[in-house]
């Protein structure tokens, strides 16, 4: 009696069967595959003393790896916001040959395995590669430098920005721009004061998504990075190196920092998405 009444309180009554079974399976599977393994990380970290944890994450090599991962992820996300916005504008507003194909190409970084992207970018931007050979005479070396990491992170982040902003711009009421123009705004003023604020939440969300993805990226980066400790070594690679050296405490501590950063980003992204949805709804 008390059991059934508490179940009714937990969810609204429904004639559809299977809530208990499906909910139970969902929670069990989620617990086993996601939550238990993630908590293992925190359990292992808690076995470290606080001083030890601080010592690991503030070691010069760790700090630098974190700096490379976060700094370049930030830079790549910024590049993607600027160029992603241009790409979206062109895809939504202009017509050109093979537009559908170009549009489909945007999803390649989602679908192409990171290792494949990694070796392809390395070959392309190496000194003897198609693009690298053009940059070499200018004294610009991309592959095996931090610049290479940036290239890889731009590659994997672009679709996040484009696919977040594209539907918002496509849905933007054309009357808004006409209204601004009829009120005497120049095209530039209209773009800055009307269009940009309308797509701003989506741009920020895309930025955060691209940044979050880039911070933890591994596969596409390690081939092109050169992986020089203190210069072009990313945090995920350092975790792998520490694991291979059987320095589990170090690997765990760095992973904890990465995971906490991901959680924080996830929160920010959720907030942004809610804001974008509010702003995006046509009649509020």
């Amino acid at each position: 009696m008390s059991l059934s009444s508490s179940r009714i309180a937990f969810r609204q009554q429904s004639v559809i069967p299977g809530f208990g079974l499906t909910m139970g399976l969902t929670l069990t599977w989620l617990g086993l595959i996601v939550l238990l393994p993630l908590s293992a990380l925190f359990i292992k970290t808690s076995e470290l003393s606080f001083e030890r944890f601080i010592a690991i994450v503030t070691a010069a090599r760790t700090l630098h790896a974190l700096q490379v991962s976060f700094g370049l992820a930030l830079a790549a996300a910024l590049v993607n916001v600027v160029f992603g916005a241009i790409v979206v504008w062109v895809l939504v507003r202009y017509e050109f040959p093979f537009k559908k194909g170009v549009d489909a190409l945007i999803d390649i970084p989602f679908a192409l395995p990171t290792a494949v992207a990694g070796i392809a970018l390395t070959a392309l931007y190496a000194e003897n590669g198609w693009v690298g050979s053009l940059l070499a005479p200018l004294g610009i070396q991309v592959s095996f430098t931090p610049l290479g990491i940036l290239v890889a992170l731009i590659f994997i982040g672009l679709p996040f920005v484009v696919r977040t902003v594209q539907p918002v711009l496509a849905d933007l009421d054309q009357e808004l721009e006409e209204a601004a123009a009829s009120l005497g705004a120049t095209r530039t003023q209209t773009l800055i004061k009307v269009v940009l604020p309308s797509i701003w939440p989506a741009l920020l969300t895309g930025f955060a998504l691209a940044f979050a993805r880039a911070v933890g990226e591994y596969g596409s980066v390690i081939f092109i990075a050169g992986n020089l400790p203190g210069v072009s070594e990313i945090a995920p690679l350092l975790i792998v190196i520490r694991l291979e050296e059987f320095r589990y405490a170090d690997a765990t501590a760095i992973a904890t920092v990465m995971l906490l950063a991901s959680f924080a980003l996830l929160l920010v992204i959720n907030r942004l998405q809610r804001w974008a949805e509010l702003r995006g709804s046509r009649h509020g």
Partner: peptide, 20 residues
């Protein structure tokens, strides 16, 4: 003249208010 130089007040069917 373009719309912005014509000095016309246009009231749009769906108002086109700037929501931000």
């Amino acid at each position: 003249r373009s719309v912005r130089e014509r000095n016309v007040g246009f009231v749009f069917q769906h108002y086109a208010l700037f929501r931000h």
